[in-house]
Amino acid sequence: MSDVTVEVMEKKLVTNQRPTDAIVGESPLHHADLASIASQGPQEGGVHFCEHKLLGLLTLRCVPLPQQQEEIESLLGVALPMAPLTSVTKDDTSIGKVSVRWVGPDEWLIIVPGDEAFDLETRFFETLSGHFSLVNISGGSTVFDVSGDQVVSMLKKSIPVDLHIREFPVGKVVSTIFAKSGAIVCRLGENQFELVVRRSFADYLWLWVQDASREYGLVVKTS
């Protein structure tokens, strides 16, 4: 099979999981037809919502030794955020926008452009030494962007962590429960948050966000 790349490096399997661009992927909120809501729905409101579709999402598990940290930094173009609950976002790396979210003491979520995931995976397995795991979860999660004057109020109905700007500054990331599901929540601005949610729960969380935003007005945007 010429069009399937199979690499067994570090005695692990890496496969490209994306077809050619001729086949369009369907994000977890595909059925919600957000584009129509964005064009026809309300244009003003306290909460803004958009789905960043089909990004490349990778879970890195590692307790990085100094050498590994250096290798990872050269691979990502950004240093791994080592302090708990921290993140980095860089718009202009060689592969475009790269975000890294601290998830646990040996776990990070890496977000890259969708078509960069496989290359990055491949380079990781080629380059990174020692014990680690890297798993492509691009199909398993999606990214919501919520913002607006009332976004904090909406989130206070949804997650139990303290969102005060002193306690939850820009750049902080937490994995927490979101309503009866969960999310990785990262503050991108005073009134802007990134929510990484699991595919199967995406519809529930979309319903929840709509409901929790009702009193403030919800504006759907296309990414």
Partner: peptide, 11 residues
């Protein structure tokens, strides 16, 4: 002790 902050029991 890993996240280094208090969180609600439901987590």
């Amino acid at each position: 002790p890993h996240c280094c902050e208090h969180r609600e029991e439901e987590e």
